[in-house]
Structure formats: C-alpha cells, structure tokens
C-alpha cells in the first residue's frame, strides 16, 4: 500500500513508513525487512530549499544530499556539513537521498539487514550481534543495540547544534532526534506520523575551518568504521572554539565536549590534536570485538582535525 502525500498535514494521517528518496527503504522492501505501507512524501512542495537569513540558514528536508555538498553557501559557511555530504555513500545515492531521509535512515547492522535474524529493531527482543560477530559494531556498550548510527549528515548537524522542525512537535535540537541510545527499537525518536520538514543552522561562524574523516578499508564508497566531523574556529593559528563529533563509537552520534574544551586557546599543532584526541578514549571500556576501534577513534579525530587545519576551503576533499 502506498500513500502519495500532497499536503504536509496529511503525513500524520497516513499509516506507514515515510519514503523520501527511497535509498534506504527500497532496499529493505526488496529484502522484505520492511513490509510497511509506504507514505511517499517526495512530492510535498516547498521542502527542497537552502535559504539563508541573518539568524541562520534553513534547509528543506527534501534537499538532496548532493546539493548540500555542492551549494556555495554551504561550502563557504558550513564546511563541516558540506564535507560529509560530498563523501558519504556514492555519487548516485547522494543525488537521490534527501536531508530528512539520511537523518532518519535505519542502521547498517548486518544482522538487522539480514532477513534470517530477528532483533530489537525488527520487533524481536534481543540483539543477535552480541552473541555473534559485531566487528563493525560500536566501540563502547552504549545501549541494547550495538550498531553505530549511520548518518554522516546527522553527525555534522551535531557540531552545528542544529535544530529540526518536526511536524506536530515543533523545533527540537538534533540531539533530541537521536536520544540517548537506550531505546534499541528505533534509530531516531520520531513517532509514527511525525516528520522533519526543515533543518535550522545557526549563522555562519567567523574563521571556521571544517574537517572530516571516514575510516574505511577501501579508498571510497564504504560505510565507515569510525567517522569524525570537526569544526575549528580559528584566531590566527589559535583555536577559539571547537566542535567535535564522532560516529562508530556509540549507537548514536556523539559530541565530545571534553575534547572540544581541551582545544580552546591552543595552537593547531599535531601535538595539541593528539593530546585532545587522547581524551576521547580516556577511561572508555571497549567491547571485546571492537577494541581495535579505540586507536582508530583517536586517529580519526586527529585526521579530521588535521584536515580542518590544512584543507584549502572550497576545494574538493579527498580522503
């Protein structure tokens, strides 16, 4: 069953899973992981937009990821958002996937995606990965589900303290979209019938440098083991403000405030980056199969910070 929604107020009335670009849902329909009725919102008017005002920038939820990655306003003012938008998934997916869709996508756990297994996210009452192979899972035990959150864009929005307009709920902080990781049944906190319509970014920061790194085994087009977004606001070569967020460590995208605080007032040297990155893993207790990520987390943070320092703004980022 499918409902082709023409009016935003109809979303709440239609039963089923929301489909925008379809890049996640179509695969789950094919594998029969999802058998939900479809609420297709791709025809909703007015949600494909990038608008800037004095108080910030508003992004429509149906904006394509590729457009975020190549829009001059985003590239110049929100580099830490543009970078993941240029490198996540594949070029074709980025042309299909929408901003709202990538924020609400389901995770990539190979148990969740395999129709042979039941799990919390499929109405079951356990996590087969815990008893099985979770070498691609979270580094720390942050909740019943140990699959990392897949949204690179969500990670970037975290570093901008972005807000989301959600139907029926109003404005919420992006952190509220992901909750605390204690509910294993969902990958986000939206209730049935709720959908993101807009994303609000604060005004562009002065002297911002963006950094991004995806740790993968291959060069391109792979889901990362660890993924880091960094924003450094610089006063010459001194860091006046820093925002650091990481995926792959926990089951939700994480901000790392202790790392951020450690950077403030310091120079952008390798030593400063390494010392700050070490704080990220201080005292953490890794899961046995993903203990290898402890070093990667630090390495990924250093790599993203190095990019923030060395990358020429406006140029295409290579990993």
């Amino acid at each position: 069953m499918i409902t082709l929604v023409e009016n935003i107020t109809d979303v709440a009335k239609a039963p089923g899973e929301i489909r925008a670009g379809g890049t996640d849902l179509q695969e789950r329909l094919r594998s029969r992981i999802s058998r939900s009725p479809i609420v297709d919102i791709s025809r909703l008017p007015g949600l494909k937009s990038i608008e800037h005002y004095a108080e910030g920038t508003t992004l429509g939820a149906l904006t394509k990821v590729a457009d975020l990655g190549r829009h001059p306003h985003i590239m110049n003012n929100y580099p830490a958002l543009a970078m993941p938008a240029q490198l996540l998934a594949t070029p074709q997916i980025r042309e299909m996937a929408t901003l709202g869709g990538v924020l609400c996508q389901r995770n990539r756990c190979w148990y969740y995606r395999n129709p042979h297994f039941s799990c919390y996210k499929k109405g079951g009452d356990g996590c087969p990965a815990r008893a099985g192979n979770y070498e691609l899972g979270t580094c720390v035990d942050s909740g019943p589900c140990i699959a990392p959150h897949p949204s690179s864009v969500g990670l970037a929005l975290l570093t901008y303290d972005a807000e989301l307009e959600v139907t029926g709920r109003g404005r919420i902080n992006v952190t509220d979209l992901y909750g605390d990781g204690s509910d294993p049944t969902h990958d986000h906190t939206l209730q049935p019938g709720e959908m993101i319509t807009h994303v609000y970014l604060p005004p562009a920061a002065a002297h911002e440098r963006g950094g991004y790194h995806r740790l993968m085994s291959r060069a391109l087009a792979e889901w990362p083991l660890v993924e880091v977004v960094v924003r450094l606001m610089l006063d010459g070569d001194t860091i006046s403000q820093a925002k650091v967020a990481i995926n792959g460590m926990a089951n939700i995208p994480l901000r790392l405030p202790a790392v951020e605080d450690n950077l403030i007032g310091k120079k952008t040297t390798d030593q400063v980056f390494e010392a700050a990155a070490a704080i990220a893993t201080k005292g953490i207790v890794p899961l046995p199969q993903t203990a290898y990520k402890v070093g990667m987390i630090r390495s990924g943070i250093v790599a993203a910070m190095t990019t923030a320092r060395d990358h020429t703004p406006g140029e295409k980022l290579m990993l």
């Binding site: 990539r108 190979w110 148990y111 995606r113 395999n114 042979h116 297994f117 087969p128 008893a131 099985g132 192979n133 691609l136 085994s217 291959r218 060069a219 391109l220 087009a221 792979e222 889901w223």
Partner: peptide
C-alpha cells in the same frame, strides 16, 4: 558468518568488499 547460527553475514556487496576504482 554468524557463529551462533552459521548464517552468512556478508550477504551483500556492502559488507563483502570487492576492490573499487579508488583502490
């Protein structure tokens, strides 16, 4: 494979990684 059930986990080309052009 999943050690608990013997079910293959690398059943797609996302998790079974063949070389791409960048490599």
């Amino acid at each position: 494979s999943d050690p608990a059930t013997g079910t293959l986990l690398t059943v797609g080309m996302e998790d079974y990684r063949i070389p791409g052009i960048g490599d």
